[in-house]
Design a protein around this nucleic acid. Structure first.
Lengths: 321, 321
DNA sequence: CTGAAAGCGCTTACAG
DNA sequence: CTGAAAGCGCTTACAG
């Protein structure tokens, strides 16, 4: 058994070539696949990481940001012999989550949602598992000790978009945000506001019932009725930007002639609208990959090397601004 | 230990209310979380299912079909105490896959790609693990015994789209398909061809370098140069449909006035183009959910109740046809 | 209801 | 290089 274990785990220097090949032949012949659970039990590890996406919708992967982060984490972990257990869950059901009630992962990756208070309550529950945690797209509250927060620079994203619009002559900007906002969205808003203030431009915030197309367009219509057409409509994300674009087209406003429009995060579908949506390129996939890497490093070295990672963003010009 | 095990596993009838509460209190106090791996080892089960997406791109979740199926599987399994281990992998790397080399799952869900020969080679490797397998969006070859194939009715999808276009007066249809096709795409093509033949209409197949927007638009341009503008451009999926839509718009062709356009699968972004893309609603999420359910049923009952499931599709009218 | 024991399939220190 | 043994944390049949 010792030698087989040594072969399976690649400690090949402990035996002769002939022995190695004999064992390998037997493995092939028997179609032997080592039981990963037994190995993990013996080594007091779990061999897997949990990804928990807290979302009220069962389609928790609908947002490309989420699925890109997932792909990044998954690829890194799979390449390093770790499993990724994926769960999407409504906030109310988190307490019953298998990943929290049973000990089956070495660490957790979290994408939370809801108000700050709600997210803090979630993080406390996750912390109670005693596992190291990577939080995506949110800051780690002070009480989260064994934690790494990974975000993209959404403040800069807001600034880049607002500055570009102002440079092109816009003086009154309207930023579309969902009623139920989230930290990244708030950062974009703060960034856009900072840029507007710096350049003496005006930034209105238009609160939409949700980020869905119908709610977004309704909110735009009401805002324009009240305040007139702004120089620019900034979608809080690509979906809201595209909603603004089609709203303008449905009313026969020229984009960018009558009103400029932008999005944020730059996922695939911005190339499918006309004019192409000016947006921000999100490093979501890379964030996921780094999150996986940092978590495995934490597991092997005992602590996270840093408390936060902030990923740079860049502007992707389309024709809509 | 016996009583604690009975509490943890919900065999509450074996003890008094007082005992139950004493154990529960101790669990809370100690923040005890049972080790899932040890339980699985004792019960000779793995407690998890693997999802393998064979894709040459690291962004293996970019297609909404894939991420919707994943969400469906994940939600069903999580709700039933099973884990889902997600891996995206290039075909060339499949042989080294952890999910194949180690014994860590009770069953596999597969989304393959490539030619029929390549997919057969993949399925043989998966079969060698001895696990029950659910194949999505492809038929199960004869040699796959312990297998369930789950597909949507793509033949009907092709028929529905072609028939609708013909009813609206189209006589020459052009179907856009990627050079590297796949079974679902071939089914759509067969369905569209059957409908065209039945109604005496003409269906040309336009092979595009890939399903990417640039390749699709290039292929359309070449086809139109050679054969003139068809009455309708049928995208093999929504992405290709949207590519056709923007191609027409960039050339100042009216849609549907000069040329009708359709997509297939009906994911979110078809609402963000103008006119809205007429498409087919894919039951991808439901397929994933049923796949998870059928796999767990297979695990508890010893065999799949059926060899195939075919999900119905419906047409979603937009303004593009 | 509790306690003692066996065993799931591994890893690893140790003796030969 | 091989063999025997302990132990990872559970479940479960059995005795008390």
């Amino acid at each position: 058994m010792t030698t087989v274990s040594n072969v399976v785990n690649g400690r090949l220097e402990l035996m002769s070539e002939a022995t190695r090949e004999r064992v390998a032949a037997a493995i092939r012949e028997l179609n032997y696949r080592p039981n990963a659970g037994a190995r993990n039990l013996r080594l007091s590890q779990r061999g897997a990481v949990g990804l928990i996406v807290v979302d009220e919708s069962p389609r928790f992967l609908a947002d490309p940001m989420t699925s890109n982060i997932l792909a990044g984490i998954s690829n890194y972990l799979s390449g390093n012999g770790y499993g990724l257990l994926v769960t999407g869950i409504r906030r109310a059901a988190v307490a019953d989550l298998h990943l929290l009630r049973r000990d089956q992962t070495d660490g957790l990756c979290i994408m939370a949602s809801g108000t700050q208070q709600e997210r803090r309550a979630l993080y406390r529950q996750f912390k109670d598992t005693g596992q190291p945690i990577v939080i995506f797209q949110d800051e780690a509250p002070d009480f989260m000790t064994d934690t790494l927060s990974i975000r993209q620079d959404d403040h800069k994203a807001g600034e880049l978009l607002a500055e570009r619009l102002i440079q092109r002559g816009a003086r009154r900007l309207a930023l579309l945000v969902p009623a139920q906002s989230w930290p990244a969205m708030a950062e974009r808003q703060a960034g856009a506001l900072a840029a507007a203030t710096r350049h003496g431009a005006k930034l209105d915030t238009v609160t939409c019932g949700s980020e869905e197309i119908a709610d977004t367009q309704l909110a735009i219509a009401r805002y324009v009725e009240r305040s007139g057409l702004p120089d620019a409509l900034l979608g809080g994300n690509d979906q809201m930007g595209c909603a603004a674009l089609t709203w303008a087209q449905d009313r026969n406003f020229a984009v960018p002639g009558d009103v400029r429009v932008t999005g944020c995060n730059g996922f695939a579908f911005i190339d499918y609208v006309r004019p192409r949506l000016t947006s921000i390129a999100s490093p979501a996939y890379e964030m996921g990959k780094q999150g996986g890497a940092m978590l495995l490093q934490r597991l092997s070295e005992g602590r996270f090397k840093q408390r936060e990672m902030l990923f740079d963003v860049t502007l992707v010009p389309g024709g809509s601004d």
